[in-house]
Amino acid sequence: MDRIDKNRRKFFQTSAALVGGTLFYSIVKPFESNAQVIEENEDKTINPLWGMGVDIAKCIGCGKCVSACKTENKVPKEPFYFRTWVEQYTVKKDGEVKIESPNGGMEGFEQSVPNEDIFKSFTVPKLCNHCTKAPCVQACPVGATFVSPEGLVLVDETYCIGCSYCIQACPYGARFMNPIKKVVDKCTFCYHRISEGLDPACVEVCPTEARIFGDLRDKSSDLVKFLQKNPTQTLKPHLNTHSRVFYNQLSSEVK
């Protein structure tokens, strides 16, 4: 009789101690930061937050941005590897929407529908949106793609295992498998150029200034002025990706 009672008492004491300890820990944990020493950040510079604006009212669909990107970033020349591409939307008078992108729009477009049948037509350049809540970053099983402190979504080529989950995850179709490097490739906003104060190659060559690049944190930048002047939208806002490419005069037909 005695031995049974002592073990039962010990069991209750141990489990009460564990539960009490866990409860105490869960109450104290939110206040953990109060106890931490705040170390002085030697690097006082605030990182820029890069973004891009696309003005559909100015884009003429010449495709110079597509070939400039391929030249600058040594993207394979085959017509299914693009870091940026242009799509042509033709809305006919009977309501049918035709979407074309011959070789990504690199050599420009041709009008395939006769003038009298067209209700409206426009060209939409597309690229990686560098989403703040990127689905591709979430999907990567190893941590080979990430949102950098400056807001860019970059790929770590030495870490990528080539599983292509991120290519499937991207709702904008911005990523592709580089056949030479055998890892995932995508637009980097020409990080090697913007970190030197230059513009990305596509922004540099655009003849009508339809692409605007800048720092969202810099109130005097062209991009912030573009966002203030124009009512802009992002692509697929219902997916909550918090994309940082803003389109002016984006029509509802754009996928």
């Binding site: 030249t71 790929v155 090697h192 150029r193 030197e196």
Partner: peptide, 8 residues
Amino acid sequence: NKLVTPQY
């Protein structure tokens, strides 16, 4: 990612 040589 910065190690690319610019062309333009």
